[in-house]
Computed example of a mutant assay.
Amino acid sequence: MSQDFTLCVGTVGGGLSCSPDGGETWNRIRNPIPSESNVRALAVYPDNPHRVLAGTDAGLFRSDDAGETWEQIESMIADTQIWSVTVDPADSNTIFVGARPDAFRSRDGGKTWDQLSLGVTLPCPIGTPRTTNVIVDPRDRNTIWAGIEVDGVYKSFDGGDTWTHLPDLGPDPFQGDIHGLALRAGQSSAVYATTPFGIATSTDEGESWDYHYFPKFRDSDQRSYCRGVMLKADDPNVIFVGNGDTIPGVTGAIQRSRDGGQTWEALPLPVKPNSVIYWFATHPDVPDVIAAASIYGYVYVSEDGGESWQKREREFGEIRTLAVMPN
């Protein structure tokens, strides 16, 4: 097992744990992040592979040494339930935090914050909507994408000041229950969104969507559930989707496409997942290192771009987020 990367795991009720040797040994963070806190979001800075943000129910925290030590960003609203965090790749002083509901934006590295009103529907089928994903478009940093659980996809053209609700992903409200959101830039750009129904793809900047439905695990299942989605850092035509029978479910799978979502395969795993595969992580400096986690605590790592996987020995409670950083 390679040890040239750091792996961090955020949980509900079990705080944050980081491994400086790729999952061999673990350090549970106890200060200042509470050891029994909810950590639902991790984001590595695009201009510093050892700087990472952790979004928790106790506020926002930052590490400058790949998760070894942490400091709280004091200006962040302490009682905000954070569901996503992203850093502008063109200006790392600009940070977006997806909350419940709506979002926050800082333009000074977290010293001060603007509360953003996306205009989400209140209430939604699950009560108060959650902003599960925020993406700063690498083609134009004033274009911001947001995925809402449960209210579809929103888009801003002015850096987050105002927002447009994009067309519905399908007739069922839960087809707009956005779990994962990914953007493929380039000549053949595409937006990918995962929901309880599968993965939806838009090739016209979110104006229309086509669904791919994965096979059910059992005939009695309502549908084949999906959670996280991730593009391979050095090949955006390779897509990984976290799949399962339901949430939290009793089994799951890692689905992969090599052709931008045209065809899919379930990847062989050394240990059958005990619940839906919830989230993924990678880093451009180590693009063949891919981490995946089931919601009920299994951590899988591939060091060959997804061709083969190992399950790490350590198991956790309920995992919500992952981060990979090169050492």
Rank of each mutant, 00 (worst) to 15 (best):
I73F: 03
E205V: 10
R218C: 06
R130N: 14
G244L: 03
D88I: 10
T164M: 14
I29T: 07
D172V: 08
Y211N: 14
E149T: 12
N142C: 11
A291F: 05
V289R: 06
M1W: 15
R258H: 13
G160F: 11
I295T: 11
D88R: 01
F157V: 10
P173S: 07
P20Q: 13
D204V: 06
C226F: 07
D102P: 01
L118G: 02
L183G: 00
L166D: 04
N133K: 15
Q310A: 13
G109E: 01
W145V: 01
Y45H: 10
V241N: 05
I319H: 09
S188M: 14
I144K: 00
G260M: 04
V191A: 04
T69N: 11
T194V: 07
Y300F: 12
D204Q: 04
G159S: 06
N38Q: 12
F5Q: 05
T86Q: 09
T164I: 15
G228E: 02
I178N: 11
Q175E: 15
V238D: 01
A253G: 09
F197I: 12
I290S: 08
V299K: 00
P138A: 09
G261A: 12
R312M: 10
R30G: 13
C124S: 15
M230L: 15
T80I: 14
W309R: 07
V286W: 00
T69W: 04
I319V: 15
A291K: 01
M1D: 15
V87P: 00
G67V: 04
G206K: 00
G160E: 02
Y213G: 03
T94G: 09
Q115H: 13
S189H: 08
S202V: 06
P273D: 06
I73S: 08
G67S: 04
A266V: 02
I135K: 00
Q72W: 00
V289K: 06
V229C: 04
L231H: 09
S156F: 10
D259G: 01
V9Q: 02
A200V: 04
F5Y: 15
P138R: 08
S37P: 10
A58V: 13
D158A: 12
D221I: 10
G252D: 00
A291W: 02
T321S: 12
A266R: 15
E307K: 11
